[in-house]
């Protein structure tokens, strides 16, 4: 138990500014994505194993609660992907960019690019939700 406290305390107490934020977000978004991915593989496999149950799973995903969750899921995928690309590029080809100032500014670019992709996607997904679940915009 003390090890758990040590690790979590390190996560919370480390003062690494942008790099720290990027690390924490990468973990949280990765874990969120893999949790949903596991469920999603199983529910999609229903089309073969139990097709009569597939629409029950889809009905759940069409609910407002899951619709909001979907917006966060898309953020997770976009952030994890763009930040992962940054990590891969620096680790494999541009090691000198781990130098602290470049690394910090690259985190800000990552967050900016994530928002640039995520916000339009969110507008479309929220609009779909309002059309189908609340009868707005002629739904």
């Amino acid at each position: 138990m003390s090890r758990l406290k040590t690790a979590l305390g390190g996560y919370a107490g480390y003062q690494g500014r942008e790099g720290h934020l990027a690390f924490l977000l990468h973990r949280v978004t990765g874990l969120g994505t893999v949790l949903f991915l596991t469920i999603h593989i199983v529910d999609t496999a229903l089309v073969y194993f139990r097709p009569e149950l597939y629409m029950d799973a889809v009905a759940l995903y069409r609910s407002t609660l899951f619709g909001i969750g979907e917006v966060f899921l898309v953020f997770c995928v976009f952030y994890h992907g763009i930040n992962g690309l940054r990590i891969a590029a620096f680790d494999l080809f541009l090691k000198k960019n781990w130098q602290i100032q470049t690394a910090r500014s690259s985190v800000r670019w990552t967050l900016g690019l994530t928002l640039l992709l995520w916000l339009p996607a969110t507008v479309i997904m929220v609009r779909n939700l309002l059309i189908h679940n609340f009868g707005l915009f002629g739904g």
Binding site: Y61, V74, F78, M125
Partner: peptide, 30 residues
Amino acid sequence: MRYSGVLLIFLAFGHVLLQDVIVGVHRIDL
């Protein structure tokens, strides 16, 4: 992790943009 990650940018972003954003869960069924 790094090479599969780069590949997943195309695969996963494409999947999310197509199924969640362009098509949308309300048009997905058997």
